[in-house]
Computed example of a mutant assay.
Amino acid sequence: MGSPVSPVVADIFMEDFEEKALLTAPVNPRFYRRYVDDTFTILPSDKITAFLNHLNSINPNIQFTMELEANNTLAFLDVLVIRNPDNTIGHTVYRKNTHTNRYLNGESHHHPSQLATVGKSLFQRARRASTARQQASGPAPTSQ
């Protein structure tokens, strides 16, 4: 992103943008979370387009796109969110088709702290996925 301060400035901007957007939205999302430039939102199916149009009307330089639930699943970051038959939400690890399952080779010539970070980052990813599941638990919205 250029300057080391750029991600911080972008996050501050997006927090302000979201606050304004959510206060003036035509519908309040049942669930809304953002990580950097990805958002996960649960809305009634008949309000999705109105909410997207509202977000895109706030600033012409910030334009959102969306992916809808397909076959009761939706990928968000490293998590595949699943709508269960009883209308609760489950999850599993999501990997893109291009994911190779390759990480740093323990015998490679990297600094030991870099090698140690591989396992740590995988553990943190698993913990965050579990925490996200707990925060999002509850009944899922009606079919979209």
Rank of each mutant, 00 (worst) to 15 (best):
L23C: 05
I48T: 09
N101E: 11
L23P: 00
A70E: 12
E67W: 03
T117F: 10
H110R: 09
I82L: 05
T49M: 12
I82P: 01
N53D: 15
T131L: 07
I62R: 03
A75F: 01
M66L: 15
T88K: 07
S6A: 15
A140Y: 12
L68R: 14
I58L: 15
T98V: 09
G119E: 10
A70I: 10
R30L: 13
Q135D: 11
L104M: 07
E69S: 06
P139I: 08
R83N: 06
Q144V: 08
Q135I: 15
A126E: 12
E69Q: 11
R83T: 12
N53P: 00
T65M: 06
Q114S: 13
V79E: 09
P4T: 01
P44G: 05
T100N: 07
T98G: 04
P112H: 08
R128V: 04
R102K: 15
I58G: 04
P60T: 07
T73L: 01
R33K: 14
P85M: 05
L52T: 08
T88S: 15
Q144W: 09
D16S: 14
I82D: 02
P139N: 10
P139V: 07
N105R: 09
T92L: 03
R95G: 03
Y35M: 08
L22S: 00
A129E: 04
G2F: 01
P60C: 03
A132C: 08
S45A: 14
R127N: 08
T131N: 09
P29V: 01
P60F: 02
K47N: 08
Q63G: 02
D38C: 07
R33I: 15
N72K: 05
R128G: 04
Q134K: 11
G2T: 04
M66H: 14
I48K: 05
V8W: 04
